[in-house]
């Protein structure tokens, strides 16, 4: 992992920012505070891992609007919404838009830190998956068209003889292609290859 995870806190109240920062630092996480959604957006870089602790009501752009804007990016960090109002319709909208939770202010340290840790793990897992996907994609693009045809047959569970007959080549040739596929995809076994292909076939996790 290139970067350490950071918790981004966006709230217009300086004392709230400072208190949350102190709390989050107490479990050894990095914190960056922003006084407004615009401020955050101006400094946002998608490749930085972490999560967002976002106040709903702020002058100018609201937390919900920021959430919707971030939705347009590919790598949206997980968001924990916090609000002094706690209106149900707002909470529902935030969750529908993908927030991992909605905490009503004030909240206990444990509730926030649990969510923050959960969010960071989620973000890390997502980034890992994404990285793996990209790596597999890279490996796959190195296969020749013939190797991809053989791979397709293998994934469909066909034995070499059947693949050879379909492709009108010798069984021996299929065996050679198959060995190349295993090598290029860096698969240790047939079951390992099957897992890698299933990851590839799953749509990219955003």
């Amino acid at each position: 992992m290139k970067h350490k995870s950071t918790v981004f806190v966006v709230d217009d109240e300086p004392d709230v920012r400072a208190a949350l920062a102190m709390l989050i630092k107490s479990i050894g996480l990095d914190v960056e505070c922003y006084a407004s959604p615009q401020d955050f957006l101006d400094n946002y870089r998608a490749e930085r891992p972490g999560c967002l602790v976002l106040d709903v009501r702020m002058p100018g752009m609201s937390g919900l609007e920021l959430q919707e804007r971030l939705g347009a990016f590919e790598d949206t960090p997980p968001i924990i919404m916090i609000s002094g109002h706690g209106e149900i319709p707002t909470a529902v909208r935030a969750i529908q838009n993908g927030a991992i939770d909605f905490l009503q202010k004030p909240f206990s340290d444990q509730a926030l830190l649990d969510r923050v840790q959960q969010a960071i793990m989620l973000d890390a897992a997502r980034r890992r998956d994404q990285q793996e996907y990209r790596e597999l994609r890279r490996r796959y693009t190195r296969l020749t068209p013939r190797e991809r045809e053989v791979l397709q047959g293998v994934v469909e569970g066909k034995i070499n003889k059947v693949i050879a007959a379909q492709l009108k080549v010798s069984t021996r040739t299929v065996e050679i292609h198959r060995a190349r596929v295993m090598e290029k995809m860096q698969a240790a076994s047939l079951s390992n290859l099957m897992r890698l292909i299933s990851v590839l076939n799953t749509p990219s996790p955003h």
């Binding site: 004392d15 709230v16 208190a19 709390l23 107490s26 916090i82 340290d109």
Partner: peptide, 22 residues
């Protein structure tokens, strides 16, 4: 009122809990 008062309460609660952890 809730919104106005909850802001300082959030600071108080979070600061004190952060201190406790510290």
């Amino acid at each position: 009122l809730a919104h106005e008062v909850n802001q300082p309460l959030t600071s108080i609660l979070s600061f004190s809990q952060a201190c406790q952890r510290h």
